[in-house]
Nucleic acid binder design. Structure first.
Lengths: 309, 309
DNA sequence: CTCAGTCATTTGTCTTAGACATTATAAGGA
DNA sequence: TCCTTATAATGTCTAAGACAAATGACTGAG
């Protein structure tokens, strides 16, 4: 009898095949193989058919490497350091050691696994701050700090899953409770295939809805061609795409440019999210939003431009 | 002067490199190359460095192929037919019956792309029927018929995305509005890696919450090992897994069996969803739920058994 | 002292063909 | 009709090499 369903995990050695590592670290199979060839890491075991089997420590080191590379380190410079050294580099990178107390308190509740109290804390923050501040301060902060802590291994996977679910509940609840739209544009909101992060998308939807735009939210991973077809069907004025840092900046920019060529000139293309936070410039006709302030400003600009006509 | 930013698109021939095709069709690069080698399609042009450049017609045929393969056709049987023939195959897939009128009316609103009216129709159905009937009748029916129509090509991808988002909004809104829990068990609710369907999970959460159970929802795709760790952390009484028909029955059953061996005997394991609708029996200690009635019955049985002790 | 341009190095992605595990279909037997 | 077994189908993995895009170091000019 063999492990059928989860062929990616070997319970004894906790070994992962290359597809599982690609999924869990975001590093492509090609990259993993070429790192092994060039730098000698990761050097996984092989199964009976010479296929790679990565260990859990390998996986953790790869995650740290990915983070540090996102921060600007070069792979060749750091790949042969120990996991401990890499952890140090990560924590050295965050000088403002601890999250603000109100964020820390909520994370603490999450780590104590008290579902009801955790939910109530989020709801209270929402009531107290209002939707806009809740999204741009509390949720953004929680995303950042929980992400950090997860990378450092201080937050288990299942807690992160629970966090994501509850934030979705609360944001969707808040969005549905918004009053009808004002004078804003119709904004089609989605992400491209490969980009699975939903929270960023919901945060944008919350802000846009609060500011009076009419959102057509398609969730994550809509193929480009289907976005093209959706634009005339829903008569949208703007297509906004979200790219989390799980995707490379190049991929995000090329997706935006491709979409731009497929859409009529009257429809604007906006892109935002972690992957684009450090991008310098995009293709002509593509607007980069590096913060929620940028988003609100873009909305305001749209209003002005379209009121004059 | 060259196209700097967007290496994926050649405006003249509308040519896409292999990475763009992978992203847009969901077919892996390996699959694209092996199809070319074995079947002679797609046979893309090459750029000056012998790299593949796919045309837009290729892309459209690939999407049709993907659709038909999802439906159950074999690649080798259909890959050499013309795009027109494939379209015919798609539309030849006619429904055995037509949906009941109240379902058909809502689908009609979706197809007319009137977001507000569509949302209102769903909300009205919820108000009129109450959460339980809304989930077990309206949402279940919509899932089924929209799935059918999507396979037949009568519902565009983006409409199906929009449907999914709105159902999520409404279900999560209803769940959060439920009163606190009664005397039911604590149920950990999630799916295994590879199973991405969220709506089924939310439907179960809605029913369980309405019946007084306390749900710990982890969203989709929680690795088995992390489920094991979550059970003591959240002190749950039951682990319920959802398997849509996107996964094979064998895979679902083996996942349930593996989880059963990892959990203490006092914790129950329940499995349900389309993939298990026709399953005969599961591993010992695993409860199969083939309908929402089964789910409510299982909950009642748990209450009785644990009240006696 | 800053800015822009050139060159060298690093790094990720694409290429090839072959091997094989996994899944689906068909055929045979209870 | 259902279950088991054989055969065909299909997708993913492997290898090393090639090269473009991205980055860093260096230079010279304003």
């Amino acid at each position: 009898m063999t492990e059928i369903l989860d062929s990616t995990v070997d319970p004894q050695g906790a070994c992962y095949n290359i597809a599982a590592v690609e999924r869990d670290t975001g590093l492509s199979k090609d990259t993993l193989r070429v790192w092994e060839r060039r730098y000698g890491f990761p050097k996984p075991q092989r199964d009976q058919h010479d296929e790679r089997l990565y260990s859990l420590p390998d996986l953790e080191k790869l995650r740290l490497l990915r983070l540090l590379i996102d921060y600007g380190h070069r792979p060749g410079k750091i790949i042969n350091r120990s996991t401990a050294e890499l952890s140090q580099l990560v924590s050295a990178r965050t000088p403002d050691q601890s999250p603000p107390p109100e964020i820390a308190a909520i994370i603490e509740l999450l780590l104590q696994h008290d579902v009801d109290q955790f939910r109530n804390a989020l709801l209270q923050a929402l009531m107290k701050q209002g939707l806009l501040r809740f999204v741009t301060e509390t949720v953004a902060g929680l995303n950042h700090w929980i992400g950090e802590a997860w990378l450092a291994g201080r937050v288990p996977v299942f807690d992160e899953h629970l966090y994501s679910e509850h934030i979705q509940n609360i944001l969707r609840n808040a969005i549905i409770a918004q009053p009808g739209r004002g004078s804003g544009p119709r904004v089609l909101l989605t992400s491209l295939p490969g980009e699975k992060h939903r929270i960023g998308l919901l945060m944008v939807e919350a802000v846009l809805t609060a500011e009076g735009a009419a959102c057509v939210a398609l969730g994550t991973e809509t193929p480009i061609i289907d976005i093209k077809d959706a634009v005339p069907a829903y008569r949208v004025d703007v297509v906004a795409l979200s790219f989390s840092s799980a995707i490379t900046q190049t991929a995000a920019l090329s997706g935006l440019a491709e979409l731009r060529t497929l859409l009529p000139a009257g429809v604007e293309v906006w892109g935002g999210g972690g992957a684009l936070a450090r991008a310098r410039k995009a293709a002509p006709g593509v607007l980069l939003l590096r913060s929620f302030d940028d988003l609100r400003y873009a909305l305001e600009r749209w209003r002005v431009e379209h009121a004059l006509r």
